[in-house]
Design a protein around this nucleic acid. Structure first.
Lengths: 199, 199
DNA sequence: ACCAAGACTTACCAAATGGTAGAAAAATAG
DNA sequence: CTATTTTTCTACCATTTGGTAAGTCTTGGT
């Protein structure tokens, strides 16, 4: 029928959407299939089980995120502001693929079935980021703090911006969603002032 | 049997545990009942439906959190460091009732059935916190930034510390969990350096 | 033309889910 | 002790769930 892997990718896309909004348990294969105009067994054919589908979606998402960050971490150009590059990069992903961060949020819950898989895949990346930060601190280009805490804080903030905004939207004042560019600028400022060493 | 509302509270406690770890959809009333040595219908008797149970658990949790914060926000003592008090207060809750923050995280997902209820309950508190911060900024006691962003960032960080640590535990280096007191100190430092105005 | 492999479907199913109806047991009031 | 109310249980049930088995249809190679 569909000659190429077109169906498979359509399933992956819809699955990402569903997992990241209603969660893993909240996603029914039947509903997913129906929303695709497809029979459930087609899904099971491509991905052996529901768990298999989650794994596939997760793998794809982590890959995108990793590639985006790896690029920044790899460059050694001392003229560029690495922190700014990182924030920009993550923000770009968050804006282009907000569902992707939603999935991360969903899957990084302690009780999630895919939590260990996520650990394995994100582990090396985290390790690199942390050791890079610690290197910067050693060299005096960054104020000495708990690298992991800063990382967790920034990560949580961005994920929060991408997902949890919903709550604040009506909870806070009326107009809440500042242009994301401005938001990014302010997060950047926030991070920089607490990270740049005192001259 | 149990003469007082003892059973009801036992149910609430276990429900909080379950909701905050495996999520709402991941929680089965049968399992919950079994883990309590009770029949499912007893749960349905006290709380009309599963959703009713979630609402009850949520109400209780928000109440605890609100009381803890309200106390700090209310005091007008200019000699005390309000930020420090806030961080301490939230950390105390996070340490004593980590499940409570897990529930918040679960329920604050956009697609959650209890999201609107959470909005309504947390709304006023958020509003107060934000307007307080903006007041501080006006008075020059706090550097001018996006109050909501800072709030979201701090909130996400603490929730992250309470729940998402799991990922970093094995992902990052071996020993990761610094004593929470130290963690709190570093978050405090992190916040203060980016919030105190330049003299 | 034929056949093997891939893609997708229909037909089922056992288990689990949230929920209803009503009986039994326990606590309490008189 | 009896009547009543509160609490808990047994017995069911309709629906949904993820998954299996086996078929049909399509496509591409020879």
């Amino acid at each position: 029928m569909a000659p190429r892997g077109e169906t498979k990718e359509r399933i992956l896309a819809k699955a990402l959407e569903s997992f990241s909004t209603v969660g893993y348990d909240g996603t029914s294969l039947d509903d997913l299939a129906e929303s695709l105009g497809i029979r459930k067994q087609t899904i099971l054919y491509h991905f052996v089980s529901k768990r298999g589908l989650l794994n596939a979606v997760l793998d794809e998402s982590v890959k995108i995120l990793t590639e985006s960050l790896e690029e920044v971490l790899a460059s050694n150009d001392p003229h560029r502001d690495r922190i700014e590059d990182l924030v920009r990069s993550v923000f770009r992903v968050a804006l282009e693929q907000p569902l992707l961060l939603g999935l991360l949020r969903e899957v990084s819950r302690p009780g999630s079935p895919a939590a260990p898989r996520l650990k394995n895949q994100m582990g090396p990346l985290m390790e690199r980021a942390i050791s890079w930060m610690e290197g910067e601190m050693e060299a005096g280009r960054m104020r000495k703090t708990d690298a992991q805490l800063v990382l967790l804080s920034a990560y949580s903030t961005v994920v929060g911006l991408a997902t949890e905004i919903e709550i604040l939207r009506t909870a806070g004042v009326e107009r809440v969603l500042r242009p994301s560019a401005q938001r990014r600028q302010e997060l950047l400022h926030f991070l920089r002032t607490s990270l740049t060493p005192i001259e």
